[in-house]
């Protein structure tokens, strides 16, 4: 075997070992490195009451309500499998709308309500011009289907 082949084999073995080690590390980190809980995870293995955590999911359509005090809002965050009721007092981010993604920072109360101290809006991977918004939903869907290729990247 020529010297350069020896070096190539050595480097490939080293790289494979390195990638294997990182994959194991990432596998071990898979829960800790997540930025937030989704409602399903919160239902299956809830964090301790009062522990600071983040909850991420979709704001369910029709669930957003302003409470009697005028500054507290309540809404339901779901992921299609489980839901968590959330309360928040404060200014809502611009992108916060029903049917859109949200990340709430706060803590789980004993009654299962999530008290949020801070809300972050999460947007999806779809980029669509604003003009399409003024059309009816059906028209907009058609234009989106025509202008994007291959549909949603999921």
């Amino acid at each position: 075997m020529k010297a350069k082949h020896q070096r190539l084999v050595l480097i490939v073995i080293a790289l494979v070992a390195l990638i294997g080690a990182s994959l194991l590390a990432i596998y071990a980190l898979r829960n800790q490195a997540s930025y937030f809980y989704v409602p399903k995870q919160m239902a299956e293995s809830p964090p301790e009451v009062g522990q600071a955590v983040r909850l991420g999911g979709m704001v369910q359509e029709g669930s957003l309500e302003t409470l009697a005090d005028g500054v507290t809002v309540s809404f339901i965050v779901g992921d299609g499998e489980a839901t968590v009721p959330v309360r928040f007092s404060g200014i809502l981010p611009d992108l916060f709308v029903e049917g859109s993604g949200v990340v709430a920072e706060g803590r789980l109360e004993a009654d299962g309500t999530f008290m949020a101290d801070n809300l972050l809006a999460k947007h999806d991977e779809n980029y669509v011009p604003r003009e399409l918004q003024d059309m009816t939903e059906h028209q907009a869907e058609q234009v989106v289907a025509e202008t994007t290729t291959g549909g949603k990247a999921e």
């Binding site: 997540s34 937030f36 989704v38 991420g56 999460k122 947007h123 779809n126 291959g150």
Partner: peptide, 16 residues
């Protein structure tokens, strides 16, 4: 991981 950053909009042959 669950991330605040959205998943890729563009992947091989697909675009959202």
């Amino acid at each position: 991981w669950n991330s605040i950053h959205q998943p890729p909009s563009i992947s091989m042959g697909k675009s959202a």
